[in-house]
Each structure stands twice: as structure tokens, then as C-alpha cells.
């Protein structure tokens, strides 16, 4: 069982790695988006591995179902006048830019990894799966304010998006 879990972890890690690589390196934004979707599925698999199936399904529903479709719309609606939709322009990336970006990505991750490797608390055996009812009780009980606030934030974001869209049409 232990080895099976490690094998599944390795598979999901490979999915995440390959997807993230494609997401940050592909010149074509549609391919980058496909990489992001691959990563999202890998993370959902890790949620399954941690016996949190609700989180995994929400990950697939919200991220793969909604957010990536939004990003796809953004790619398709921002095509340059002469160019192909989704191509990142600007010619080859300067080497300095890549090196600096590598530094900015590696440095925080390396510092945090060092902290985790030295200071991580003992890992408990996996807790029993949380029944969905408990989550609902928490959401409507002690955390009802957060629940309501996130609805307000979503409403404000939707209203803001609609207002921005109207302004665009008026100025055109």
C-alpha cells in the first residue's frame, strides 16, 4: 500500500512538473494553458491521495471547469492585429531576463525548502476522511462571515468585470 501511494505521488508529481514547465515556457499561450490544466489535474490527484475527495472535485470543477475557460477566452480575445491569437510576441527572450526570472523563482523556493526540510513537524498518519456535512456545518457556523464575504467579493468582481466591459464598448 505504501509503495502504491509513493507511485501515485510520483505520477502526480510528474504531471505537475511537466504541466508547470509547459505553462511557463511555451511560447504559444494555448499550449501554456493546456500545461496549466495538466498541473491542475496533478494537484487534484494529490488531493485524492490525501483522502480529500471533495477538494479534488472542487479543484476540477472550479479550476479546470471555470478558470481555465476564462483564461481561454482571454487568450482568444486579445489577438494582435496581424498576429496569431495566443502567440507571445516580442522575439526571443533575452538571456538576462531568463536568468533573473530563474533567480526570482528559485531563491524563495530554495529558502522555504530549506526551512521545511529542517523544521517540518512530525507527519501524522492520515486522518479519517472528513464527512461533507462537517464542512457544511463549519461553513455555516463559525465561518459564516468568511462565507458571506467571499460571496460579496465574487459579486464585486463580476460587477467590476461587467462595468469594465461596458466602458470598453463605449470608448470604441
Amino acid at each position: 500500500m505504501e509503495q502504491l501511494a509513493h507511485a501515485a505521488y510520483g505520477l502526480y508529481l510528474v504531471l505537475i512538473l511537466a504541466g508547470a514547465w509547459a505553462a511557463v515556457r511555451c511560447r504559444n499561450l494555448v499550449r501554456a494553458l493546456l500545461g496549466l490544466i495538466m498541473t491542475l489535474f496533478g494537484v487534484a490527484g494529490m488531493y485524492f491521495l490525501m483522502a480529500a475527495p471533495f477538494m479534488a472535485l472542487m479543484q476540477i470543477l472550479i479550476y479546470v471547469g471555470a478558470v481555465s475557460v476564462l483564461i481561454f477566452f482571454a487568450i482568444m480575445l486579445t489577438r494582435t492585429p496581424g498576429g496569431e491569437a495566443g502567440e507571445e510576441g516580442g522575439g526571443a527572450r533575452p538571456a538576462v531576463r531568463t536568468v533573473l526570472a530563474l533567480l526570482s523563482g528559485l531563491l524563495p523556493a530554495a529558502i522555504l525548502a530549506a526551512v521545511i526540510l529542517t523544521k517540518a513537524p512530525q507527519s501524522l498518519p492520515l486522518k479519517p476522511e472528513l464527512p461533507l456535512g462537517r464542512l457544511g456545518q463549519f461553513l455555516t457556523g463559525p465561518y459564516v462571515l468568511a462565507f458571506e464575504l467571499i460571496s460579496v467579493v465574487l459579486l464585486a468582481a463580476m460587477a467590476g468585470a461587467v462595468v469594465l466591459g461596458f466602458e470598453r464598448r463605449k470608448s470604441a
Binding site: 508547470a20 511557463v24 483564461i71 486579445t78 526570472a101 523563482g105 523556493a109
Partner: peptide, 17 residues
């Protein structure tokens, strides 16, 4: 790993999307 890749992409990408 995801954090590192995200930071790298955020600084190296040119397009907003």
C-alpha cells in the same frame, strides 16, 4: 515547486495572460 514555477513564469512572461 508550484510556487517556484509560478514566480519564474510571472517574471519571465511578457503577455498579461
Amino acid at each position: 515547486l508550484l510556487l517556484g514555477f509560478g514566480l519564474y513564469g510571472l517574471t519571465s512572461r511578457r503577455s498579461l495572460v
